[in-house]
C-alpha cells in the first residue's frame, strides 16, 4: 500500500515539475524518499501498537490465579453491548489448562476482567490501562475459584463487589 502511494506521489511530482531541470527533479525525489520513510514508520508503529478494544467474543485472556486454567476465550460478556471492560464479568471457555488443576480444558467458566489493555475512565476522570487482558475465574456467586491472584489489579473491583479478589491481590493499582 505504501509503495503504491509513493509511486503515485512521485508520478504526480514528475508531471508537475517535468519542465524544470534534471537536477531539480533529483532533489524532488530525495524529498519524496524522506516523506515515504516517514509514512512507513507510521505504518510500522500502527502495526506494533494495535488499537485495543473491548473484550468480546473470541478474545483470549490470560488467567491470573491458581485455578488451573492458563488461557480462556471469552464467549459472552455479561455487561455492555460492545463487550466487557475492566472489572466486568464474562463467560469464557477454558482453552488451555494445567494438568491436575481445579478447572479442566473445555469447561465453561465465569471470570472477572482484572486487567484490560483498553483504557478505562476512572471515577476522577483520568484513565487507566494495563499491559494485557487478564481474568480471574469466579463461580456464579462471584467467589474466586483459586486462592491466589497474581499481578496488579485495579481498585475499581471494590465498587464491583469483588473485595475477595482485591484482598488476594499483591498489588493494587
Amino acid at each position: 500500500m505504501a509503495a503504491t502511494f509513493a509511486s503515485k506521489c512521485s508520478r504526480v511530482g514528475r508531471s508537475l515539475w517535468g519542465g524544470l531541470g534534471n537536477n531539480l527533479s533529483g532533489l524532488l525525489s530525495a524529498s519524496h524518499e524522506t516523506a515515504c520513510n516517514h509514512f512507513l514508520s507510521q505504518l510500522v508503529l500502527e502495526i506494533l501498537q494495535q488499537q485495543r478494544t473491548f473484550i468480546q467474543m473470541r478474545t483470549v485472556l490470560k488467567v491470573v490465579d491458581n485455578s488451573g486454567a492458563k488461557k480462556v476465550m471469552c464467549i459472552q460478556a455479561l455487561k455492555g453491548k460492545k463487550g466487557a471492560r475492566l472489572g466486568d464479568t464474562i463467560i469464557a471457555s477454558v482453552k488451555e489448562a494445567y494438568p491436575n488443576g481445579k478447572v479442566k480444558k473445555g469447561k465453561v467458566v465465569y471470570g472477572v476482567v482484572v486487567r484490560a489493555a483498553m483504557q478505562r475512565g476512572r471515577c476522577d476522570g483520568s484513565e487507566v490501562k494495563f499491559d494485557d487482558n487478564a481474568v480471574v475465574l469466579v463461580d456464579k456467586q462471584g467467589q474466586p475459584i483459586g486462592t491466589r491472584v497474581f499481578g496488579p489489579v485495579p481498585h475499581e473491583l471494590r465498587q464491583k463487589k469483588h473485595v475477595k479478589i482485591l484482598s488476594l491481590a499483591g498489588h493494587i493499582a
Binding site: 476522570g125 483520568s126 487507566v128 490501562k129 494495563f130 499491559d131 499481578g151 496488579p152 485495579p154 498489588h171
Partner: peptide, 12 residues
Amino acid sequence: PGHGVQFVRNDA
C-alpha cells in the same frame, strides 16, 4: 486529579 492516563505494567 482527573487528568491524564496511567499505564500499569505487569510488574505493577
